[in-house]
Structure formats: structure tokens, C-alpha cells
Amino acid sequence: MTTLDSGVDSLADVTSSEDRLRRFLLGLPGVDQVGAEARAATLGTRSIKTTAKAYALDLAISMIDLTTLEGQDTPGKVRALCAKAKRPDPADPTAPQVAAVCVYPDLVATAKHELKGSGINVASVATAFPSGRSSLAIKVQDTKDAVAAGADEVDMVIDRGAFLSGRYGLVFDEITAIREAAGDAHLKVILETGELVTYDNVRRASWLAMLAGADFIKTSTGKVSPAATLPVTLVMLEAVRDYHEATGLRIGVKPAGGIRTAKDAIKYLVTVNETAGPDWLDPELFRFGASSLLNDLLMQRTKLATGHYPGPDYFTLD
């Protein structure tokens, strides 16, 4: 296993050439699939009740990147989503706002306008999302367009083809180029773990993205199955924890896609708490990429407060 506590200087060294980067990534400790999945399953058995549940539900709501990424998206749809982001529960103003609204670049301006003054960020996918199959020039332009339209956060995809064929340098250079194009916007790097398949690849891709300047590492586009899973998120949380230990820098994690219930969301929060630690229980460092999750969180929240479930029609469908 590679010793990771060697500090920032030696990590800078790691990225000085493709060969060194490659050797570093291949030298990372392996992940035992059975063990990682067993650990995630055990964390999933934590029983979060009463006050802890109330805390977790509100925290989860505040960590949502409320997302719509469909060909059929319209300004009307985005406006409705933004209204929901600002006031998730029409019946209860104490429900917290979500962290961000996530849209395609052409709808950033609409979202930005709707969310003005709310404190909610606008995130935009970019770089030929979701496949990433385009030239670097187009990906850079895509990113610049999103930022110019006002995106506070950019969710880019990595070139999985390049990663799987071992061209780590290419993936690294692309992330640094987008990092530059994104300027001050927060950069989330989507690994698309459903296409990387092995946990060893997930760990390597996590380190690669962090070394290249990601602010967040994100599991999935939501367009590939499987999207986020608890064991994949566990492996990524271990990576940000180890990266923090080596550099002092905290990188965020965003599981996206497939998290639909409050129960699942709480399992993720437990995993964050017991893996990366309580510092990561913050929308600055952990997000859920989701849409339907929000209504279940709101319903459980109402249940906890009032003792009974309102019907699903009491929550908005946007």
C-alpha cells in the first residue's frame, strides 16, 4: 500500500509527469469488494431515531442539488423547480432550502434569475454531459458558457474511455483545463462510477480528480445504471478523508442518482459521519444529486413533527 501521509509537496511531484501519476494511482491501496460492501451494509443498519432523525432530515434537505436534466426541460419547468428549491414545503416555512438547483447550461440564466437573492446556488452540468464524448475545445466552451450565464457550480464529467484505457494524463489535463475555464465556480467532477465498475477504479479516479483540482467528486450523471451506491460513496469518502490527511484540504462528495428515500439518505449521512467524519456533514462538503428524494424527506419530516403522514398530494411535483 502507498503511504499517503507524505504531504502536499510529494503529491505535487506525483502530477509532474504522466508516468509518475500513473505509478501513484496504480500504487494506491486496493479495495476488497466483499469487505467494502460489508462495511457499507453494516453502516446501513444504524438506527437513526427521534432527535437524530430530525437533524438528519433537515441536513439532508439542505444538501440537495435539486436536479432536472432532461431533453424536455423548459424555462417553465426550471422556474417551478427554483420555486420549490426556495420553499420546499409549501405548508411549512421551517423546512430548510436546498443547496443548489442543477440544470443544463442553456437554462442557467433562467435559474439564476429565479434564485436571485435566495442564497441557493445554480449548478450546471457541462463538458458534453453525460457522455463527455466531445473535443476538449467544446468542453471548455460548454463550461465557459455555463459560467458566463451565472453558474456558481460546474458539474463536469470525466472521459471514462480515456480512464479505462489507462490514459490518466489525458483525464488529468482535461480536468485542469475545465478547472481553469470554470474560474471561481465550484468544480464537481463526475466519475460515472457505474462505468468504472471496480472499486479500485473508483478510488483511483477519486484521487485523480482531487489531484487535478476538483472541489467535489461526484459519483454519477444519473444517466447510467447503477448510479450512486452506498459502497461506492464509502470508497470516495475514504479517498477524501485520506486526501485531507495528506494535504489538509477538504474535498466534497456528491452521490447522485438513485437515492429516492429518506431512509437511504440517512444511511449516506451515517456513512459520511463515520468515514470522513462530522466535518463533512455540511452542504459545503456533501451533496445529494436528486429530485424525488426531496419529497420523501419532506414527508418524513412532517410525519416526525405531526405524528402522521400527509398524502403525497400535499407535496409539489416539481
Binding site: 479495495v31 469487505g35 467494502a36
Partner: peptide
């Protein structure tokens, strides 16, 4: 051993 899958080893 030094090449153990470290995080799962700690769990083990």
C-alpha cells in the same frame, strides 16, 4: 501484509 486492502483490513 503491506499490500493489503487497507480500509477493509482495518474493518477486519
Amino acid at each position: 501484509f503491506e499490500d493489503a486492502p487497507i480500509d477493509q483490513t482495518i474493518e477486519g
